[in-house]
Amino acid sequence: VQVSTDYVFAGDKQGAWEVDDPVAPLGVYGASKLGGELAVRTSGARHVIVRTAWVVSAHGNNFVKTMLRVGAERDTLTVVEDQHGTPTSAADLAKALATITVRLVEDEAAPTGTFHFSNAGPTTWAGFAREIFAQSAARGGASAAVKGIPTSDYPTPARRPANSLLSHAAIGAAYGTQPRPWQDALSDILDELIGAKK
């Protein structure tokens, strides 16, 4: 079971990426992850590759924790609003990977190949930030106004796909996996970081 990324796609499609859409990474990171996919596929081993995107949790460094930290220091933040995707709870991803792994071990006929997993529902980085602060404020945590900006105003060393939306059709058909809305997953993360809503 290998975890891969939305970065294998160019990000120029309208709508969600299907597992069999053409890949065209924009940079070294995406190319290296695609190289890993190809190595797994050509190994001859029974395998599942799961592509994911925008992974966050209550642990480590990630977008949610960065927003809470910076939001506690500033009244207004600028966040990219022309990159689209879906946040993914690391805990939800782990559950999906565990389900797949157990099935692969116990059932020789378990589906193999490439699948996508993220939480459900589209947003932008700015939309994600606004929801983080809305839910944080409801818990008595940090809150800040979010001003959306174009990617061109926030250059980064690695180009990100403009569209990272991943279709869940394949993983739903093969494993019955129906991801929950990203807002619900975010709520669990904030419960762990800040506490329950007041």
Rank of each mutant, 00 (worst) to 15 (best):
Q2S: 08
L93E: 08
L38E: 15
H47M: 10
Y7H: 01
V80Q: 02
T5N: 03
S43G: 10
Q183C: 10
I132G: 09
T78C: 09
S187Y: 11
V3Y: 02
K95S: 03
L186A: 11
F128M: 12
I149C: 07
V64Q: 04
L34A: 08
P111F: 09
L77Y: 11
Y29F: 13
T88D: 03
S57G: 10
F128G: 00
A10F: 15
S32V: 06
P25R: 04
G30D: 14
A126S: 09
V50S: 10
N163K: 06
D92H: 03
S143N: 10
V8Q: 13
Y29S: 06
I171G: 00
W54Q: 13
R160Y: 07
A129L: 03
A90S: 09
S152Q: 02
S164A: 09
L104E: 14
K65D: 09
P111K: 06
P122E: 08
H47A: 15
Q14G: 08
S187V: 02
V56R: 06
S167W: 13
W54G: 11
E106S: 14
Y29N: 02
V79Q: 05
G148D: 04
R69H: 15
W182C: 01
V8C: 13
V23R: 10
I149T: 05
D75N: 12
I132W: 15
S118K: 04
F128D: 07
S136Y: 15
A162P: 02
I194M: 02
G71L: 02
A158Q: 05
Q83F: 01
D92P: 02
G148R: 01
S57E: 03
D107M: 08
T151S: 11
P87G: 13
L186V: 05
Y154M: 01
E81T: 00
A134R: 04
T177S: 03
I171T: 00
G113S: 05
G30R: 12
V79G: 08
P155E: 05
Q2L: 14
E37Q: 07
Y154L: 00
V23Y: 05
G35R: 00
S164H: 04
K197W: 09
V19E: 14
A90D: 11
L77Q: 04
F117A: 10
S136H: 13
A138M: 09
G148S: 11
A72L: 04
